[in-house]
Design a protein around this nucleic acid. Structure first.
Lengths: 308, 308
DNA sequence: ACCGCTCCATAGGCGAGAGCTATCGAGTCG
DNA sequence: CGACTCGATAGCTCTCGCCTATGGAGCGGT
């Protein structure tokens, strides 16, 4: 049984006429006759009663017709479904990202991606690198933006570095003006506001302070990104955030760069090594990498270092 | 898109392994790989992510899988449905017959047919030749037993004569013994019981009486076959019925043959000329014709004359 | 580190079959 | 009775699905 045999069969059943059916399906009449005959032989029963000028379905033909129609319709549906997926008119990308990047990088990138491919559903999972890595491995995420180095490196994940971004200190416009540029050691003893456990920014800042030989003093700790910025704005202390987050946070905040070497983090894109991500995810990856390159040139970000 | 491509695709999706899938569908592994690739090219999207030892469906593959399964299942159903029809394990025959044959010939024939093909549904339409011919032409009957000549002959119907049967006179065992053999003219003035309008037996008998120069006298007229036999048994008059009906009517009835040339009717099988009857109908036709031949030799029926 | 094993992809050849054109033969109509 | 219609048949070409043989990449054992 072949798809075109079923198509020819349906055409004859509709036209009640071999020659006209052959025209409808764009084959010669003998080819169509032959295929119908082959189908009849395979099924072991005549499908049409061929009386001159009065082609009729036999009972076997009547039984076959609805099934043939359904099979052809299903095949058509299959073609369209898959082609729509392939042409990004439909689909889904599940992207994981840490809160700092959800606030900083993602809005523009997702906006650009959505404008180009409005049929693709975007699911963003906001979480710490640890959670994101687990979900990637489990297959519940297609892609994740992560901060390197990964908390649990694994050969099952492939990471591509996107860019490095400097961290800056933010403070309330009403607070005492910190020295410019600020060294890490200048943070010693100053009141600070810190993210909850799980933020890689927390670990990064804490490690830097300890490397400088002091334990930072937190007036408030534990909020999410927006809350921390709010606390800073309210004068509760200094905050350490990525450049892009500080830039987006708007007024009421003073941004102070750190003295060299400063603090820097590497942002990368991670996906499973064993399966190729869906087409839509690969395109999102392209958009992300292009945006990263743009940011490197226009916003003073640093290009990504060697791949780890 | 080909059926075997879908089958191979499903096999790989199930086995998650090209080589084992190839064994499952009994083709070489390269053939299977090639067909999968052809399918992927046609659909414009990869269906599997081929990582060593970890073959996985892509999103396109996931979309295709349920449809592929359904298409294959439908194709299988189609094959079985048609083959069951062809092998007479299922099906239907719609047979029309006049009441006299429903009473006489049909019970044994239908019993024999049903024993041979228990899956075939038998629908019997009891009616006068006129109605039966109309229903045949309309397509609501597959076959009909009719008495020739047809009331409305038409080239759209093909008739095959089965046999000729003699008519006999039945009377109550309590009534006056009619002369043996009886001539048609002996019926003049004798009380008779007659069928309702529409029975070809009525027309046949009336015509014979008129040809013999008299108008018959009916004490009761208008009943169906069983009723008429009951009236005869009750002594209301003589009846004229086919030999086989008289034979089946059981006791309480005296059967008197008619003197030569007597009365005779030709029973034929009719079907539409333009469409071949369903397979089951053709087989029933065979059984009927065989039974007719048997009746000709064993029950003293006469063979059918030349085909009209 | 290397060898061997597994497993999918590629190459080349063969045969089936689906397509074509040309023609036949049966039934229909003017 | 001849022209016409329409499905079946014949003979051919060429695509394509199948095969065997082989390539090449990753993984495991010694």
């Amino acid at each position: 049984m072949q798809f075109q045999q079923l198509a020819y069969f349906v055409a004859v059943a509709d036209a009640r006429h071999f020659t006209r059916a052959a025209e409808a399906v764009h084959v010669s009449q003998p080819s169509l006759s032959q295929q119908i005959r082959t189908l009849e032989n395979e099924l072991g029963a005549p499908l049409f009663s061929r009386a001159r000028g009065n082609i009729t379905l036999t009972d076997a033909g009547e039984a076959l017709l609805p099934l043939a129609r359904r099979i052809l319709a299903d095949a058509d549906t299959a073609r369209h479904e898959v082609m729509e997926l392939a042409q990004l008119r439909r689909g889904r990308v599940r992207l994981g990202a840490p809160p700092s990047l959800c606030t900083g990088l993602l809005p523009d990138v997702l906006r650009e991606f959505h404008d180009r491919h409005p049929g693709i559903q975007l699911l963003v999972e906001e979480g710490g690198s640890h959670d994101l890595v687990r979900e990637l491995a489990r297959g519940s995420l297609d892609l994740a933006l992560v901060v390197l180095p990964l908390p649990t490196p694994s050969p099952a994940l492939t990471t591509v570095e996107l860019f490095q971004e400097d961290l800056v200190v933010v403070s309330s416009v009403d607070a005492e003006v910190p020295p410019t540029p600020l060294r890490i050691s200048d943070l010693a003893g100053r009141p600070m506001v810190m993210f909850r456990h799980g933020y890689d920014l927390r670990d990064l800042t804490l490690a830097a302070c300890r490397a400088a030989g002091f334990e930072p003093y937190f007036t408030v700790e534990g909020g999410e990104m927006d809350a921390v910025l709010g606390f800073v704005r309210a004068g509760l202390g200094l905050g350490v955030v990525p450049t892009m987050v500080a830039a987006r946070a708007g007024g009421e905040l003073r941004v102070t760069p750190l003295a060299r070497p400063g603090l820097r983090r590497t942002v990368a894109l991670a996906h499973r090594s064993d399966v190729a991500p869906p087409r839509a995810a690969r395109v999102l990856q392209d958009v992300l990498m292009t945006a990263a390159r743009r940011a490197v040139t226009s916003d003073g970000f640093r290009p990504a270092g060697p791949v780890t």
